[in-house]
Structures are given as C-alpha cells and as structure tokens.
Write a protein that binds this DNA or RNA. Structure first.
Length: 561
RNA sequence: GCGCCUGUAGCUCAGUUGGAUAGAGCAACGGACUUCUAAUCCGUAGGUCGCAGGUUCAAAUCCUGCCAGGCGUACCA
C-alpha cells in the first residue's frame, strides 16, 4: 500500500520535473541540466502544505534568478489529476504548493486497513539485527540509569522490528571475573559479621544493604557451615548464590518494566567453552595479537584505535576486552547482519577498541553500532536526590517503577534524545496532570475510546468506512490531523534509521496536541449522522496511530483513565 | 595534553539530515466546563541558537579556532 504522504510528494516531484523539462523544450529555461527535485514540508502553514527549493538549486545551472525559474516552472505545470489547489512563489524563490483537502482523505482508509501495522515498513528486509542492552553486572540491583538504557534499547528493538528487521534483544551477563569474586567476598564478610566476627569492610567491596540481606539468607540456609570451609570455597559459594539471586531480581525488575529479552548470554560461557582462548590463539596466528612486556596485546591501533590494548595480562589473566572480542565475534557468527550495543556514556572509551575488534574479525565497521546513553539526574520536586554509589545508597529502578509506574518512567526516558542528559523528576513523573506528557498522550486514547463507546455502546465497535462521510472532513483541524497521521510512517522510518525513539515520542505529543485542539473545537458526535460517521472514522484513526506509537515505546494505551 | 558528548526563551528540551519569520512544554499573565472525559483548550509575553571566522543563493545544522560543562583516556570491570 502506497503511503499518502509519500505519494503526494512523489507526484509533486514528477510534476515539477516535467514542468522544468517542458520549459526547457520551449526555450524558457536555457540549460537542460536540472537538479534533482526535493519536496519538503514547510514549518509555517502560510508556506503551503509542501514546497520545493528547485528554483534556488537550479539558479546556478540555469544562470537565471531563482524567482524567474520558479515562474517558468509554474507556468508549465500540468496537474492532470487536480491535486494542487494553489501554487505560489515565495521568498527567494520557493515554490509553495497548497494541496486540495481531499488529497489527504485516503490516509484514513489506509490506517483502518493496516490496523496495528500502520506505520510499519519492510526496508529491513528480514535482516537479522541484535540489540544488546542493560547488561548490568549482577552485583547489585538496577538503578535509574539502567532504566533509561532499558527503555531505549527495548524501544529501538521494537522500532526496527516494525520496519522489517528480524530483531533479537539480548542481555549480556558479566558473570565472570573479579567483580563477581568481589561480590562473593563482600557477602562472605557480611556473613562472618553476622556471627559476631569483627571485620574491616574494605572500600572496594559492595556496600549496599542488599549484601547484608544475602548474607542473612545464607545463614538461614546454611547456618555456620561456611565458617568451617576453606575461605576460597566459601567465597565461591557466596559469589554464585549472590550473583544468581541478584540476576533473578534484575529479571523481575525488567519484566515489571515491560522489557523481555530473547537471550540472556553468559560471559562465563565464553570461557567454559574455550571460546575466549580460541579467539586469542586465532588472532595470534594471524598476527593481530602480539606479546610485549609479558602481556598479550591486540593491535587495535591498526584499525583506528589510539593505542593497542591488552587482552592477557602478564599475570596470565584475561581482560574484560578479551571476552568482549569473543562475545562480539560470537554475535556475528550467530548470523546477525547488524549489532547494536546500548552502553552508558561512561563506556565511550570502549567504542573504538570494540569496533577495531569487529573489523579485525572480518566484519564491516558499519555493521556495529553503539548507542551511548547519557546519564540520568534523579530529582524530587526540583531538588537532586542524593545518590552515593560508594555508600551503596541509590534509588533503584524498582523503586522508581513502584513510585511512578512503568508507563510514566518509560515515556520520560524516551522523551529526550539519548545523547542528552536527562533530568528525571519523581514528583513530576507521578503527577497526573498536563505537566506529565505521558498522560497527555494516553488521555487522547482514553478520550477517543470513550467517544466510540458513547457512539456504539462498546469501545471495540466497528467504525465503518463511508466515502461520502469522509469527504465531509474539511475543517482546518481535520486536515491538519490527516496530514499528521499521514506522516507517521516516515516518522517511524527516520526513527529506525537514526535509532532515535524520541522522534516517536515527539510525534505523539504533537498528534495529541492537535487532537485535543480539535476535540475542544468540534463535536465528533454531531447532529448530522453523516458528519458524525466521518469524524468517528477520523478519530478512530487517531486512536490507532496513538496506540501503534505507544506500542513502539512500550507504553500502554488505556481505554479509560 | 588527547578524544567523545553537550551548549537554542527564565527552566526542561525539539528542530524534518543545508531552507523561508528558529519551535513546543513548564513557569508568568488573561480567558473557556447546562454539550462526546477540564488529566483538556484558546490567547499574551518571552531569543545575539556559547563566541569568532569560513564554505554558498541559503547555516542552529557543514569546516576551523577559541570558551564553558560532563565523561573518558588502566596489564579495572
């Protein structure tokens, strides 16, 4: 099905190109060289529905003033299907098109036919894409920053899937290495404390209260048994148990936050299967890895990194980077064309080296993409909430979801470009007013459901298509809504191309605003049954687009509020 | 020092990949509920797009150099 907005643009493009050709044939334009025609949407309504800068771009080729070129193009327009109401030349030489209202009407039928697929596309052509996000170490509960990463990653995945990519969402569990040992040690020390042993709790250990809770839990299950084992065994036991428990908590928190991963991938498994060793050996054979000062180095600088990086330290232990190389190789080996990693902004120093590893493994640079999500500043009533990771005092994602709800949290996380720092105000987030954009958008959905209930007795009632009724939609606000609705597919597309979910958020706020304005000015259920029928059809289309958009963000579309 | 991100209205942020007079929301002020949900709407006011150059018909957007803030720059994870 051809999109209405795209169709109109294409048509105008052709009209302009043909007109320019005719003008040249008749000698009105000297050069046969014509620039490509681009059709844009002006931001000011006074500049028409669509416009082209053709005359401006053609000026240097034609060696003529732009306004003169514009005149000759307009004179040669042959608008055979009566699409255009009016054209004008404006400013330095823009050609503005005012499209007939009826040109936008077909979008309604399209929306009703496409249903929950309206806005979807297939330019992904089934290519496999992996989105990896959150991937927090299982050494403590998720905090607010992880929530932002979760919302962004989940939504990017949804959007790409909507555009025809075969998407898999993955969580990488850093369940190996020193931080897990530190976790075990932290729990074990608290455990010994429970039995009255005086310990000097080290600063590098995890300070949070949850460590004590885990220790108590081990006591209730194992009594004092661990005190009688070799300390290494006891620490190992604590580490496994704690990481397992924390991971269960993380899964629960994410589920409650509406995030479902297809794959939970264990870092330890890369060691257990020998994948990390094999990768290092393989690169050694190929000369990408070399020895210096007793350590093994990966030659990332050959691929644009500022220096080479260590993969095996001189004490024989592998670095985090080593398993990262193996992990990313494994991703491509699983058949993904594209790999997208969502990282916290503090990891940006890693982009170059992982990209280098990807390239050294024989994949293209553009098959790997990192979304760097900036930090979240948590506020309460405008005042910063004190968060000290060192003291283990921070507001967890669970706390936030319990206080403000999943919908509000997700919407706010996606209400800003991921590259700019986000102020998250708890008071504002749970406020049920127009200050809170999520309710502003959801309210539209609930309102429309209410209208439809009123019209037919049930929200699920079928709203029927009637050509004569749709033709009655000619109010300014109605045409505006039609134009905005027809723009949804391209919004989704640019959102997918740029991996920017916030474009959907802004689109929805704008659509909501236009609907509220319409609602306040015109009655949907009017005395005239034909008009009512047309308006119901329009309003149901708005509802559908709000629902589809909110779905992509992972936010619910309530029928009542 | 080097690298990345950010700098737009009092505040929080958009800005259609280079377009016309730079837009929303909040806060301020003034209005609108006997009518489909007032969690709403309408109006007013608010700007040297960090600064300085450059590229061109056209720059918030691209290039260069400064300024400010954040982050990074480990044989840490």
């Amino acid at each position: 099905m051809e999109r209405v907005a795209a169709m109109i643009k294409e048509r105008l493009k052709t009209l302009v190109a043909e007109a320019a050709g005719r003008a040249h044939d008749s000698g009105e334009l000297p050069s046969s060289q014509m620039p490509p025609v681009s059709i844009e949407e002006p931001k000011a309504d006074a500049h028409g529905d669509l416009s082209t800068n053709f005359a401006l771009v053609a000026a240097s080729l034609q060696k003529m003033p732009p306004r003169k070129i514009a005149e000759r193009v307009i004179e040669n327009l042959r608008d055979s299907d009566q699409l255009v109401e009016k054209t004008e030349i404006a400013g330095p030489g823009f050609i503005n098109f005012f499209v007939k209202p009826k040109a936008w009407h077909p979008v309604l039928h399209q929306i009703h036919q496409a249903g929950d697929r309206y806005g979807a596309a297939n330019f992904g052509r089934g290519r496999k894409v992996q989105v990896e996000f959150v991937s927090a170490n299982p050494t403590g509960p998720l905090h607010v920053g992880h929530g932002r990463g979760a919302a962004v990653g989940d939504s990017v995945g949804n959007i790409l899937a909507f555009c025809g990519f075969d998407v898999e969402k993955e969580y990488y569990i850093n369940d190996s290495g020193r931080q897990i040992r530190t976790l075990g040690r932290s729990v074990f020390l608290r455990y010994t404390e429970v039995f009255g042993r005086k310990v000097d709790f080290p600063a590098e250990c995890y300070q949070g209260e949850y460590i004590r809770e885990l220790a108590l839990r081990i006591k209730s299950e194992q009594g004092d048994q661990l005190l009688h084992q070799p300390e290494e065994d006891a620490i190992g036991y604590c580490a496994r148990l704690a990481a397992g428990e924390i991971l269960v908590g993380i899964r629960n928190d994410l589920r409650r936050f509406g995030v479902a991963f297809d794959v939970w991938f264990s870092e330890q498994s890369l060691y257990d299967t020998g994948t990390v060793d094999n990768v290092i050996k393989d690169f050694q054979r190929r000369g990408s890895v070399y020895e210096r000062d007793g350590a093994l180095w990966f030659g990332t600088s050959a691929f644009g990194d500022e220096k080479d990086r260590v993969v095996v330290r001189n004490n024989g232990l592998t670095t985090y980077f080593a398993s990262d190389i193996a992990y990313h190789q494994d991703k491509y080996a699983r058949g993904f064309d594209r790999v997208i990693d969502v990282w916290g902004a503090d990891h940006h120093g890693y982009i170059e080296r992982v990209t280098a590893a990807v390239e050294a493994s024989g994949y293209r640079r553009d098959q790997f993409h990192v979304i760097l999500v900036q930090l979240v500043n948590l506020l309460r009533g405008g005042e910063p909430v004190a968060m000290s990771t060192r003291a283990g005092e921070f507001v967890t994602l669970r706390d936030v979801v319990e206080e403000v709800g999943t919908d509000a949290a997700r919407f706010i996380f996606l209400s800003r470009h991921y590259g700019s720092p986000l102020d998250f105000d708890l008071e504002l987030a749970k406020q049920k007013s127009n200050d809170n954009p999520v309710y502003y958008v959801q309210y539209v959905h609930a309102r429309i459901c209410s209208i439809i209930r009123k019209a037919s007795g049930s929200a699920a009632a079928e709203v029927l298509y009637d050509e004569a009724a749709v033709a009655r939609l000619i109010e300014t606000e109605e045409i505006q809504l039609l134009k905005t609705l027809s723009r949804f597919p391209e919004t989704v597309q640019s959102s997918a191309e740029n991996l920017e979910p916030h474009r959907i958020t802004f689109y929805l706020m704008n659509l909501a605003s236009e609907f509220h304005a319409y609602y306040n000015k015109h009655r949907v259920l009017a005395d005239d049954p034909v008009l009512s029928c047309g308006r119901l059809y329009l309003v149901e289309a708005v509802r559908r687009v709000i629902e589809n958009g909110l779905n992509l963000l992972g936010v619910s579309a309530p029928e009542k509020m």
